[in-house]
Design a protein around this nucleic acid. Structure first.
Lengths: 327, 327
DNA sequence: TACCATATGTCAATCGGTTGATATACTTTT
DNA sequence: AAAAGTATATCAACCGATTGACATATGGTA
């Protein structure tokens, strides 16, 4: 049997109340008693039961994190930073991989609520899920619109799209095509496309966008890219909405012996550490995942403290262009 | 106030016991009552409090997962699979990023114990941590030796090292060098080095190993690689102990205009999905992260069920050679 | 009619803590 | 010497469930 607070009390020869006071630093306790209690805890190998504490305190210090997939380098990096920031604030993280599936996401959210998490950070999302809209339930979304009331944190997608497109223009591309993720996910990432279209229009070009069907089905993506090359042999600039797609574009170009950057220039998006190491030559737009994590948690903590007014409903963090050899 | 089981009872016009019986499917309950209770739960938006349940049942259905960093593609992928398998068995995951630091790992483990996790999967590790050795506490290690009693799951590192080295030999490399991670981490990954050395010896070659200091300090790694090229200009084959290092080798080789694969052949290790997409040309040894996750959880569940005997203490899963253009 | 399975209720203990109320000392300070 | 501060104890309620013991009422069956 695991030792309980009563066992500590007995071992230290004090009352249960005193032990609790020592643990929580409340009321009057002499140093001697404190030492005794701590010694007793060591001796019997006592570890407090946070379940019992949380039940009484109505606070678990756990937050739920719903991401599409930690195996994706962007989400993996984001997850790392979110967990790290949480830990630095004494919060723990219950991890959920939704794979962008609404049914899973809904179940995960219910699970989180049953576990009395203090708040949720959603990096994936499906608008229809009603539990997100429980009154005064702390939620922060990253890069996805959940509702008018739920704060969104993300990077400056419009600026990123603008920088990418402008770079391709500056480098002399005549036929620039954009590839983006499934547009039915209503994400601010769609602003990348908007920026692309605006910049193209402003320069008298016709924007063309190819859409990949799923964020995770690599084979399907390859098909779309193949189709793009087939249908638009004149293409000489591609702005892909993430680095994985950009990498696939590069692979396809290589297969078709279309030299990069001389005959085709490519710009990706995300600029994760992993991407920088594995594919350093790719020009990409870097998202500050650490800052996104920090900001999201800042806002979430405010909500947890009950401050639901004056929340920054949309936070846009700066992106950086990283020029590699593909432009 | 959140609705409690008593609120449900009131709304459904039954007793608290009946509601609990409905929830847990015990004793005699008529279909009519069941329907009523479920209707009442819907109406008042009831969500059971798993804290209270867990406190009573002494079972949280939570497992702790300690990994170095989810931002690393291998660990991110492993984390994804572990969480997925857990979810399929009704388990939830508390995520910890130890960054391979013993102090953090120790604190995380204590946190997990306070939260009454049913078991822990450790992908990182530091032997000194005593809490791992609590009697009958379910722990499974992945790719790291914790103690003689704690089961380890990993891939066949020896075979991987063997295949990599033999491939380089077969391809005609005369000066093959191995780069591996910090050897003070006593991991089965050191078997990759052992295999390399054995194969080299068997073929009458002198094994040379360079060691990178940290798994995560990319700049330091670059230094080691630079040093390698400086000191061993004759090198024409490198077996790196992970794909990130292999990528850095490739980058350095490019900088020095040492063409791959004609003048230098490179084999990496891990073969993550991300790696395959971002750097498809890299020849690498693929680890079955999904299988590793599945196997680790299988063993952990047995421990959770109290079966501490007849545990497979060391599980070795098959690796696959993926040949790319770097050999 | 007696018996038994079914259906539900009441009550209280339990899980492992926290906390407020109240009491009782011993020390200091005024 | 009285008042105030310090240190600890006892007791019981509480957090939100689960569960066993026991009671009661209905319906079907032997």
């Amino acid at each position: 049997m695991k030792p309980s607070i009563d066992d500590v009390a007995e071992a230290a020869g004090v009352s249960r109340t005193t032990v609790s006071r020592v643990l929580n630093n409340r009321g009057y306790i002499s140093q001697k008693t404190k030492d005794n209690v701590y010694k007793a805890m060591k001796e019997i190998n006592y570890i407090p039961n946070d379940l019992a504490r949380s039940l009484y305190n109505k606070r678990t210090n756990i937050i739920g994190l719903i991401v599409p997939k930690t195996s994706n380098p962007f989400y993996g990096e984001l997850t790392f930073h979110i967990e790290s920031v949480c830990a630095s604030f004494g919060y723990k993280v219950l991890l959920c991989n939704s794979v962008n599936r609404m049914d899973k996401e809904e179940k995960y959210l219910e699970m989180l609520l049953r576990n009395q998490v203090d708040g949720v950070i959603v990096v994936t999302y499906n608008r229809g899920i009603t539990n997100y809209h429980r009154e005064n339930f702390p939620v922060v979304a990253i890069d996805h619109y959940l509702s008018e009331k739920i704060p969104v944190v993300g990077s400056d997608n419009y600026d990123g799209g603008k920088q990418a497109t402008e770079l391709l223009l500056k480098k002399g591309c005549q036929h620039i095509i954009h590839i983006n993720g499934p547009s039915e996910l209503e994400t601010p990432a769609n602003l990348r496309r908007k920026a692309y279209e605006d910049v193209m229009a402003k320069n008298g070009r016709t924007p063309i966008t190819y859409e990949v069907s799923s964020s995770f089905d690599q084979l399907a993506n390859r098909d779309v890219i193949g189709k793009l090359f087939d249908e638009r042999p004149e293409v000489d600039g591609i702005f892909a909405s993430d680095d994985l797609i950009a990498a696939s574009v590069m692979a396809e170009a290589k297969k078709r012996q279309k030299d990069i950057p001389s005959r085709l220039k490519v710009v990706g998006y995300d600029g994760t550490e992993t991407g920088q190491i594995l594919l350093p030559e790719l020009t990409t737009i870097h998202q500050p995942t650490d800052l996104i994590a920090k900001t999201a948690l800042d806002i979430l903590l405010k909500e947890i403290e009950g401050e639901f007014n004056d929340l920054p409903l949309e936070t846009c963090l700066p992106v950086t262009l990283i020029e590699g050899g593909t432009t």
